[in-house]
Design a protein around this nucleic acid. Structure first.
Length: 349
DNA sequence: AAGACGGGGGC
DNA sequence: GCCCCAGTCTT
């Protein structure tokens, strides 16, 4: 099996992967149908998100919005609430933007080529390839982290997989060997192998259907691939969070429409670590007449690029300022999309 | 090319 | 604590 050209290695993939996938495919909710709407929603949810984390969200989302028309007509706040805790909230906004566009411009029918799909909000090269191959049997590669890792190992390619050029090269090579009539299965077989066998750590090489093809395995260097660029380090931000309580209700407000956690709800907060005296003054300036500090709590939340060190002050107040929306625990839990960074304070109030 | 953009699970 | 996940968009 040595000295195969890279082209020959790629060409051998479908015959090895397809039978393996037929035997080993997991039963996942979005594999029950090839309906573009269902596949699309699953692919968006799966961006940078593990299968296990998605399953519950996917089932709830489909129950709430069974068709693209239901999604297009829904209140945005309801879409965001169903996305609460899943992260990367622009995905939810783009999802509905695209639903409206497909309903309004295409009479509810999805484009059936990767090129056309990629023009839609939230659909990039990966998602376009996934939908085109799975729903329409197009030979369009879906190059995600799994595929990058698999191909870097099989070809012992030491070019950093973070580079767009690496991704394009692998996608182009794959598209030449997509098996006619089995494109959807081939796309999913690749990802299934990456998720279940060719994993980042301790890959299951002994159970791998393409072991005989794998240069990294042959060189006993599977752990050396893929090569990745060094990551930027995250910055630390101190914030003060105000848990203002009055008459059994707590103050919340909406975040800016752009940027971090765009358009979601939050407890009032400001930059910096205020002392309790400064916090009381801040509350007074916002018209809530703080009458007592119940307690203070410290919480940390880590985003991809920022670490929030938060000090939360629970202040009992004598007035409900119109600067905020006031919500009881029931509404806090069920009506407002509160991201994890703030939801973690629910146990304190 | 680099940074913004969430959150959770595995070790 | 670090890694990394069925990525996309903006600058």
């Amino acid at each position: 099996m040595e000295d195969k050209t890279e082209q020959a290695v790629y060409e051998a993939l479908p015959a090895l992967l397809l039978p393996w996938y037929a035997e080993n495919a997991r039963d996942l909710p979005w594999r029950h149908s090839r309906e573009p709407y269902r596949v699309w929603v699953s692919e968006i949810m799966l961006q940078q998100t593990r299968v296990e984390a998605v399953i519950g969200y996917y089932n709830r989302f489909m129950a709430a919005f069974p068709t693209i028309y239901a999604l297009a007509e829904a209140e945005e706040s309801r879409v965001l609430k169903l996305w609460e805790g899943l992260g990367y909230y622009s995905r939810a906004r783009n999802l509905q933007k695209t639903a409206k566009q497909i309903v309004d411009d295409f009479d509810g029918v999805f484009p059936d080529t990767a090129e056309a799909l990629e023009k839609l909000p939230g659909i990039g090269a990966y998602t376009a390839g996934a939908i085109a191959s799975i729903c329409f049997e197009c030979p369009s590669a879906a190059v995600d982290g799994n595929v990058l890792r698999i191909m870097a190992r099989i070809t012992a390619d030491d070019s950093p997989i973070d580079l767009p050029a690496t991704k394009r090269k692998i996608g182009a090579a794959l598209e030449k060997v997509y098996p006619k009539g089995r494109c959807g299965a081939f796309t999913q077989a690749l990802m299934e192998l990456g998720a279940c066998v060719c994993t980042p750590k301790s890959p299951g090489c002994t159970a791998c259907p393409v072991q005989t093809l794998c240069a990294a395995h042959r060189e006993n260097a599977v752990q050396s691939f893929p090569v990745k660029l060094p990551k930027a380090k995250k910055r630390v931000e101190e914030r003060t969070v105000f848990l203002l309580r009055c008459g059994g209700e707590t103050a919340i407000c909406r975040r800016e429409e752009t940027g971090l956690l765009a358009g979601l709800w939050q407890f009032p907060n400001c930059a910096g670590a205020l002392t309790v005296e400064e916090a009381v003054r801040w509350a007074e300036e916002h018209g809530v007449q703080p009458v007592g500090l119940f307690r203070s709590v410290h919480r940390t939340h880590i985003f991809t690029h920022i670490r929030w060190e938060m000090i939360g002050y629970l202040l009992d107040c004598a007035a409900k300022s119109a600067d905020f929306v006031w919500a009881g625990r029931e509404a806090l839990t069920e009506a407002y999309a509160l991201p994890t960074a703030f939801r973690m304070f629910l146990e304190d109030i």
